[in-house]
Design a protein around this nucleic acid. Sequence first.
DNA 1: CGAAGCCTTGATGCGCCTCAACGTACGTGG
DNA 2: CCACGTACGTTGAGGCGCATCAAGGCTTCG
Lengths: 233, 233
Amino acid sequence: MSLLDASLIADVPPFYGIEREKLIALLSMAGSERYEKDRTIFSQGEEAHSFFLLLDGHIRVVRVTPDGDQVIARYISSGEIFGIAHAMGLENYPANAVAAVDCVVLSWSGSLWKTITEKYPTFATNTYKTVGARLQDTQDRVVELATERVEQRVATAILKLANQTGRKTEEGILIDFPISRQDISEMTGTTLHTVSRLLSAWENAGLVKSGRKKITLIEGHKLALIAAGDHNK
Amino acid sequence: MSLLDASLIADVPPFYGIEREKLIALLSMAGSERYEKDRTIFSQGEEAHSFFLLLDGHIRVVRVTPDGDQVIARYISSGEIFGIAHAMGLENYPANAVAAVDCVVLSWSGSLWKTITEKYPTFATNTYKTVGARLQDTQDRVVELATERVEQRVATAILKLANQTGRKTEEGILIDFPISRQDISEMTGTTLHTVSRLLSAWENAGLVKSGRKKITLIEGHKLALIAAGDHNK
DNA sequence: CGAAGCCTTGATGCGCCTCAACGTACGTGG
DNA sequence: CCACGTACGTTGAGGCGCATCAAGGCTTCG
């Protein structure tokens, strides 16, 4: 805990505009932990004991239905807060959070929520903006699921991932964490089979290059056309 | 404006737990307006000049896609706040709001948002809870759209409407505002044809009774089975 | 080196959209 | 108040997008 330095979070969106001194105070209340790949940070239904900031890594937020289907709500990238049930007046986490790669996570006890938001209104504002942005984002997905075909949704998902977490390589933009066909299907409401077929077709057309749990975006513009519903063929 | 009385909003969720005196102050900052059926309160993309409280009526919140498809984001019932782009740090409304019946609406200028939330933290907390609840709700719809069949989604939508706004009649629970097959289809990501067929089938089975822009729920329990994905037949 | 996890590709079928045509209730103006 | 036009609802026929079922290849890891 004493290893934490204010510079760790100074340049991270939720803490923009907060004085260095206050950052140190905030950090002194936080715990830090490393989560290896595939480890669960919190589970759906569990009492919301803490809220979190992802310092490094990628986290997958997943909802599970009563009959076992999984739906990926979102991926969290480093610098984002998550598990903020407290900000929404929830007493339990509404989804699972799982490390998609090895992660470093800061956490604050939920009992500090009230104090922190009162004492650091900038942080509160930033957080509510985040919640708002996620609501927007989720609404967009509803519209997509309701109006677009699978092909478009998968294309959109890949473009979004590439923008959010893409790493430039010599071949193109590589999605920076292991992601399977099944993962993509759980983001887009389809099956791994359909995703596999689409990726194969796109690979033949030179739009992407993909392998086991790995996707590289080559021709973003062309994929964007598909996402927009181009019926070119 | 001077006709407004504190009792108007004292028993309305966003204002729970605020002293009468403060309520009067809040009301003195608000404008009130009547919107006849089908009139637009605000439009998607428009600059967010105000935020609103629905005193009486029902409001439909609709997103429109670039190619003209409509998706109903939610219905607002009396006592709810809406158009709270400010709470989420948005500068523009993300959807259209249209009066589903004649409505009475209070509005506050967006420029008051900061002052009001600072001065009345209870109101702020209540509002953020609302945003959180809507995020939850929207996530649920994503899961539904991604995993359930049309039949289940339509059943769920009707049950939800009946619970939210149902009025007990001698026949059953009547959804308290005019709602077309098309409206239901825009809530559930299907077509009016499919909704029509489903309602016909359910009417024959005695689960609902429906007419022009009118739906009455008769056998809620049986419809709930369908919503849950019962494959009885 | 074997086993488990991930990916691919074909065959088949069905849920639901699409297209089409017609019936029915509403409200508006003559 | 009745006649007409428009909006809403119903129902059928046909077809396609995608899930489902099935089988096999490849990669990674213990």
